[in-house]
Amino acid sequence: MNLDFSGVLPSLPYILQGIGTTLKVVVLAALLGFALGIILSLCKISSIKVLNWIADFYTSIFRGTPLVLQLMLIYFGSPQVFGIQIEPFTAAFLSFGLNSAAYISEIIRAGILAVDKGQKEAAMALGVPYRKMMMDIILPQAMKNILPAIMNEMITLTKESAVVTIIGLNDIMRRAYIVGGQSYRFFEPIMLAGLIYYVLVMILTIVGKLVERRMRRSD
């Protein structure tokens, strides 16, 4: 085996710059996924049947097809459907956000159903309207229980974001690949990219643990 990291060292800053791109995609996708996920989960537990159907259908579509296909559909399909070519970055966070929403909505739905039924009754008995009850009483308690699952989803999102390479977005993965192509040595730059992803995931894990501990204050 011949390994030589000295060759990729000059390209290190170039690869590291990809962190910004990756993080931007992940954060925006997470925000979109979370907001839409909450809305979808509320649709799923709603007593209005049509809303149940729409939310379930949405989830089944995004869970039932490959993520990379959704990404390509949005990126390469946009000129045909919307008449404009959207940016790779936009396509990336849109497809990841929409995809994440499907998974997050399932997580939140389960979390809401796990909150003691008495909480809803107590809020209702105090005259708290549905919206406030959900936002202030039910969701905060649901969040506490589902935080580990949400963290998992964020970690998946961070790693899976590497497929944006395919539409030419200069994230960590693609930069490593380019460096490899220029020097004909792929192993070292891609190992390096792997290390960066690993560190990002470790940081996310630690942040998740801290948030969880903070939320357990009331126990």
Partner: peptide, 18 residues
């Protein structure tokens, strides 16, 4: 409105834990 005027106490308290 009706509920704000009628208080209720439950067997299992149902305080908001958070």
């Amino acid at each position: 409105k009706v509920r704000t005027n009628v208080g209720m106490v439950f067997q299992h308290f149902h305080l908001f834990p958070h």
